[in-house]
Design a protein around this nucleic acid. Structure first.
Lengths: 206, 206
DNA sequence: GAAAAAAGTTGAACTGGTTCAGTTTTGTAG
DNA sequence: CTACAAAACTGAACCAGTTCAACTTTTTTC
């Protein structure tokens, strides 16, 4: 166990992650070349590719952290959601959106999204979509809780409705990431209006 | 007008489009190199880049054709939509989906989507998003017509609701494009269920 | 119709992510 | 401790999209 080899491997991996994180923040994802990351992390280019399949794969480590954190925080909202369904959904939405820029810039999100779409069978894409599925399941879960609490009509299809609401969240976030002038507040306002339009009609019956 | 120069320009452009269209169908987008397109079109690589900013830009010409055609066909649905709102929306949806593979493969859609996300300020991305906006407006337009016909509750926010429905359509199409095993029929089934979940509650009032 | 200007063409060189054959380091067996 | 095998490291070379300085063709001017 904890042989020299293992120790060095963990150390190198951490050095690469630290270096890239620093450089990306400094100069942006596109501007930073693998050479620079390798140099800054004191490994060779070849070694970089021993630890990460591609440059985009490096991003995924960060995206994963970001989403896993947000999923965990989201669970605490599910445990005791606001009574009003629109408020409950917006609480989750705000959590997702506010957290989105902690580790990643808009540019990094764009790159990650584009890479996830580009080749669907790559491990990158599969993992990214699994994270998305987790978020979608959380939205569906929230609707179920609200339905159980009698805040949403009992015959609502929580699964289908949750998918629609999540897909909308996601699409709006994509739009936000693409447009550098689109602010977080504008994003939340637009999504609030959309969420209202979809959810209001469901509130009546218990 | 019709000077020699103009004539040659139009001819070269057409040759490039014909060549690329043929090659893409033959071998897929990624497999085809600019060299091959240039050779097949009997121009130099440099000339290719005189006519198209990037390889992805070439795709956009095709995407544009595809979307403009579908927009036009969609208008005829708006003129006399099915009475049932779910049916009306699904008529539009089916039109979009069935038309999607006439000119473009899944791989080409993925590439176009990824490129549109990648750099938001490029002419490519701006034009692609304008097309998306056109489709979104058409969905909103359909909801308006249905509302005017008294098939949807009068206080519905057609704009917000249309955006949500379109974003869902689009997200599901993206998922479909990413996953080579996802069939058109499965796609339509899932979107039907989602559309029902969102639209059913709105049908009551006039 | 010749000369100058404008527009367009060309392909070799560039760029930056990725690979791989050769080398070094680490672990293991005798 | 030595010899061998396995694992990991290395950077020069590769690849495919893109650029650009030199060259050709077309148009305009006189």
């Amino acid at each position: 166990m904890a042989g020299l080899r293992e120790k060095q491997k963990a150390d190198r991996r951490r050095r690469i992650l630290t270096a890239s994180s620093l450089l990306f923040k400094q100069s942006g994802y596109q501007e930073v070349h693998i050479n620079q990351i390798a140099e800054c992390a004191e490994v060779s280019v070849g070694t970089f590719y021993n630890y990460f399949k591609t440059k985009a794969d490096l991003l995924l480590s960060t995206v994963s952290m970001e989403v896993e954190e947000v999923l965990q925080q989201g669970d605490s909202i599910l445990k005791d959601p606001p009574e009003d369904p629109v408020e409950a959904l917006m609480a989750l939405t705000r959590l997702y959106y506010d957290h989105s820029l902690v580790y990643l810039s808009k540019e990094m999100w764009r790159t990650a999204m584009a890479a996830a779409i580009q080749e669907g069978q790559s491990p990158f894409s599969i993992r990214y979509r699994a994270l998305d599925k987790g978020l979608c399941a959380q939205v569906c879960g929230l609707l179920e809780v609200l339905q159980e609490n009698g805040r949403l009509s009992a015959d609502m299809d929580t699964r289908a409705m949750g998918e629609v609401i999540f897909n909308n969240l996601n699409a709006m976030f994509t739009e936000y990431s693409i447009d550098e002038t689109f602010t977080l507040d504008e994003l939340k306002d637009r999504v609030l209006r959309q969420t209202r339009a979809v959810v209001k009609p469901l509130i009546g019956a218990a």
